[in-house]
Nucleic acid binder design. Structure first.
Length: 302
DNA sequence: GATGGTCAAGGTTAT
DNA sequence: ATAACCTTGACCATC
């Protein structure tokens, strides 16, 4: 079991997703930004290892405009050594990483242009995993997409597009149950059609479900991960921010709720991404709880 | 140096 | 039809 947090480390004075505006695009700025972003990513990973946090979601903005046609800078070759070095560090420390392309990636859109741009974004993010030399246990995480007033059509469009994806993307793509549109059951139907693993989000499941108890839902999702090809199930963990809009993530880990959730896990092995506002602070607390329970062993140091 | 409007990309829901 | 929301920082023009 690994514990992680997404994209940003608030303890370090660097960012791995620095960018600039499209209007001020230049190759020089791309080169500068990617160099800085990869250096910061490496610092974050070292920091994480020291804290026994071996799971990390890499931000989508490592390469500014990484899938935009304006960006013709050959960052893949210019930074091949740096990407390889990051990947080597990840492997040497038994870490696992993921990407979560954001809301603009919609594979089931009825608009062919949106689908094309979405595929290009997935190709870009998958190519970073290739450059790092990381296998298909490191994932690209997206949602099923929009509803467009017809759930059946929306699901069938996702399936049709999935079949057209490049292998480098398809081998790594996983779908996450969301909190309003596509439930775990919907994701299971997509899985039954194409075999894609389901990245389970406990909080989204609490917001949208068909009565499956948490322990059962966890096992249904876990069964969609192929042990060698995909690795153990990845999941997102969060809980409701008290007094806030339904679906809003808590500002910091509610330890009693987390302990209760761990009990639901039983002996299931998963890697948990804490989608909690205070990032590595809560991830560290969660990691401490699991170490006290004997569910995590200390990371080996290199 | 500080400030506040703005930033590639989509979709849903409320008004 | 239009705006707010998701989520969020940080870029950048302006003062």
């Amino acid at each position: 079991m690994r514990i992680g947090y997404p994209c940003v480390n608030e303890s370090l004075d660097c960012t791995s997703t620095s960018t600039f505006r499209l209007a001020s695009y230049s190759d020089e700025r791309v080169e500068l930004a990617v160099g800085n972003n990869l250096a910061c990513l490496q610092r974050i990973l070292v920091w994480n290892v020291a804290q026994h946090l071996l799971f990390f979601r890499i931000g989508s903005g490592i390469v500014p405009f990484g899938s935009h046609p304006i960006n013709t800078f050959p960052w893949q070759t210019r930074f091949a050594a740096e990407f390889r070095s990051v990947g080597d560090y990840i492997k040497a420390n038994s870490m696992r990483v993921s990407f979560h392309p954001d809301q603009f990636v919609v594979l089931n859109s009825p608009d062919a242009g949106i689908v094309e741009r979405s595929v290009q974004e997935l190709v870009y993010q998958g190519s970073m995993l290739d450059l790092m030399g990381l296998d298909s246990t490191h994932k690209l995480q997206i949602h099923v997409g929009g509803l467009y007033g017809d759930r059946e059509l929306a699901i069938s469009r996702f399936i049709a597009t999935y079949h057209t994806l490049p292998e480098a993307v398809r081998a790594r793509l996983v779908i996450e149950n969301d909190d309003r549109l596509f439930s775990l059951q919907d994701c299971l139907r997509v899985h039954a059609a194409v075999g894609i693993p389901i990245l389970f989000d406990n909080f989204h499941h609490e917001c949208l479900n068909h009565g499956e108890p948490m322990a059962e839902a966890l096992r249904l999702a876990a069964a969609t991960w192929h042990p060698t090809r995909d690795g153990v199930m990845m999941m997102d963990y969060s809980s409701q921010a008290l007094g806030e809009r339904r679906g809003k993530h808590t500002a910091s880990l509610e330890e009693d709720l987390f302990q209760g959730f761990i009990a639901e896990l039983g002996d299931l092995d998963v890697d948990i991404m804490l989608e909690i506002k205070d990032k590595e602070a809560s991830a560290g607390r969660a990691c401490g709880i699991l170490r006290n329970l004997g569910r995590i062993v200390a990371a080996q140091t290199v």
